[in-house]
Design a protein around this nucleic acid. Structure first.
Length: 551
RNA sequence: GUGCCCGUAGCUCAAUUGGACAGAGCAUCAGCCUUCUAAGCUGAGGGUUGCGCGUUCGAUUCGCGCCGGGCACACCA
């Protein structure tokens, strides 16, 4: 329908000998302004030096439109051209929803582009905490969205199990272990204080007795406290991800960047471009040459690189593995590093438009009036597991995705827990359950309920009511919502859209009885129910939210 | 102090990538169940989009300057 209109508008412009600027259609906010509108007359006004309404009128007079597709054309406001679609056109298009079913909403704008999405990437020093949830969910949904749009997505997790942080983990566990065994040693400064450290220490005590030393080796000859701690933490992280139905394809260890020589390679490449220099025993990256306020150290005087260097090498390595598009998701607290990494990549000759970095703002949790304190300092960490236990997987996804990533998110735990009308998740799920209930009834009454049967055997002429048409219009927006959300990396558009679907459905349901009307009308309305169910189901699938048959 | 993000109804947030009278939910108030799920529907009130300039036919959206909040500013990751 839209393509048709654009063609006709282009034709009219040609006839009028107007410059052929790009014709775009928009969806007006207010329904009275039509199903779609066109602002081309406004854009042309300046070029042609003519009042926009006059231009709009000329365009309108030169349009030849099929009335079975476009019902009406109106000039309004400053020079908007508003169009209304004919019901028959809407109905015909809506039939595709039944035909496509599980595939409805998919596109191929990604053209199979090899895409790497890296996220979560927490180091194995503890369980995921609730704040990680935002990133976990964002990445999960964005990966799904990209796949729905035809990208070839590899889900990747980058971790570092070397260095000071792991030693600190081991020291922390050992200190707790000694305490459990009746001894007393100083707990490391800045050590990890979570309760899980105790848990790990207890497990070690049970398994290895109470007399092993700090440098006790495991069966592979590695320091036991570190390797045990790492394994424990990684397993915890993976179990949490598993609960959320998140599966990474690749776990990439930072270590391989060193063993493969990638790190040294990056240094020598930067050196060739005169972007590094030595000072006070450290190696500095001349970021000030790249539009950044000051230079940064990339290799400490101890010989260890800072995180920037492996991060640059890692991104380079991803390109070398053949990825055409890299997507990273980071919390706002990483903003400074990303700028350096991108600058580094650009300096090495990579196209920064092939790297998309999504930065999400922090999350605060509230329980009723109370703010849930999250502190790494003390032992009171609200873990992601606890959050999942408190509100369930569906609410975790829905609430984290519901808001735009670049604003601070307030996660209301008590609201997410509530099994009541206040909870926006239920509004959507309830619509699905309602439809499922109607369909169960319809099956008993021997109506067609499968999409294919309905498509072939229903008389769509009988769909005439206002709420029926309005609902179909909303359902027809789905594919473009998916494309927009993906192109803009804004999955929060999905819950917003779902709400409008549920709203239109509930209104339709309230004003029109499905079962019990004349038989053909009943069948036609069942068709609308099935279409709606398909859209809710497909959208929820991307969101990782379940669609209950009963509530 | 410097960089990034945010500021929209009492609260939590939208706003189609610059469009028409800025929209929802919650909360408040008033209605609707003998019928397929009332976790629903209908209506009412509630706003100088933090403030001020500027660009534009047109600004919540873009630019500049203030004010307020968050995050980051290590030879930590």
């Amino acid at each position: 329908m839209q393509e048709y209109l654009i063609q006709q508008l282009k034709g009219a412009l040609q006839k009028l000998n107007y410059p052929s600027i790009e014709v775009q259609l928009e969806k007006p906010r207010i329904p009275e302004h039509g199903d779609v509108c066109c602002t081309i007359a406004l854009s042309l006004a300046k070029i042609l030096n003519k009042p926009p309404r006059e231009i709009a009128n000329e365009i309108k007079n030169n349009l030849i439109l099929d009335t079975s597709i476009i019902k009406s054309v109106e000039i309004a406001g400053a020079g908007f051209i508003n169009f209304n679609f004919a019901n028959s056109a809407i109905i015909n298009k809506a039939k595709y929803i039944l035909e496509l079913n599980d595939l409805y909403g998919k596109s191929n704008i990604g053209k199979n582009k090899k895409t790497n999405l890296e996220w979560v990437s927490a180091n194995p020093t503890g369980p995921l905490h609730s704040g990680h949830g935002r990133q976990v969910c964002l990445g999960g949904v964005i990966a799904n969205l990209l796949e729905w749009n035809g990208f070839d997505v590899t889900r990747e997790y980058y971790f570092n199990n070397a260095g000071n942080q792991m030693k600190l983990l081991a020291d922390s566990i050992f200190a707790r272990y000694v305490k459990l065994c009746g001894g007393n040693i100083h707990f490391p400064e800045n050590g990890y204080q979570g309760n899980y450290i105790n848990t790990i220490a207890e497990e070690i005590k049970i398994k290895f007795g109470s007399t092993i030393s700090r440098d006790h080796k495991d069966e592979n000859g590695k320091p036991l406290f570190q390797s045990f701690g790492e394994k424990w933490c990684f397993q915890s992280i993976q179990e949490t991800l598993h609960k959320l139905n998140i599966k990474h394809d690749v776990f990439y260890n930072e270590d391989s960047l060193y063993s493969s020589g990638k790190i040294d390679e990056v240094i020598s490449l930067l050196r060739k471009k005169d972007l590094v220099y030595e000072e006070e025993g450290a190696l500095w990256f001349r970021t000030s040459k790249l539009g950044i306020d000051k230079d940064r150290v990339i290799v400490k005087s101890t010989g260890e690189p800072t995180y920037r260097l492996p991060d640059i090498a890692y991104h380079q390595e991803k390109f070398e593995r053949g990825f055409e598009f890299l997507v990273d998701i980071f919390g706002a607290d990483h903003i400074a590093t990303i700028i350096d990494v991108i600058a580094g990549l650009e300096a090495l000759g990579y196209d920064k438009s092939k790297v998309k970095v999504i930065i999400h703002q922090m999350v605060s949790f509230v329980e009723g009036e109370e703010v849930v304190k999250m502190s790494k300092r003390n032992a009171k960490v609200y873990t992601l597991d606890e959050l999942i236990n408190d509100v369930g997987v569906d609410a975790v996804f829905y609430f984290f995705i519901m808001r735009s990533a670049n604003t601070h998110l307030e996660f209301d735990i008590s609201l997410a827990k509530k099994q009541s009308e206040e909870n926006p998740l239920y509004y959507v799920q309830y619509a699905h359950a309602r439809i499922a209930s109607i369909l169960r009834f319809a099956e008993e009454e021997k109506y067609f309920t499968s999409p294919i049967d309905i498509l072939q055997k229903s008389n769509f002429e009988l769909v005439q009511k206002k709420e029926e048409i309005e609902l179909m219009k909303v359902l027809l927006e789905f594919p473009s919502i998916i494309i927009q959300s993906s192109e803009m990396f804004e999955p929060h558009r999905l819950p917003t859209y779902l709400k409008s679907v549920a709203e239109s459905f509930h209104r339709f349901y309230h004003n029109n009885r499905v079962m019990g009307e004349e038989k053909n009308t009943t069948q036609a309305r069942l068709a609308i129910c099935v279409m709606t169910k398909i859209v809710i189901k497909n959208c929820c699938k991307i969101l990782n939210v379940s669609v209950p048959e009963k509530m």
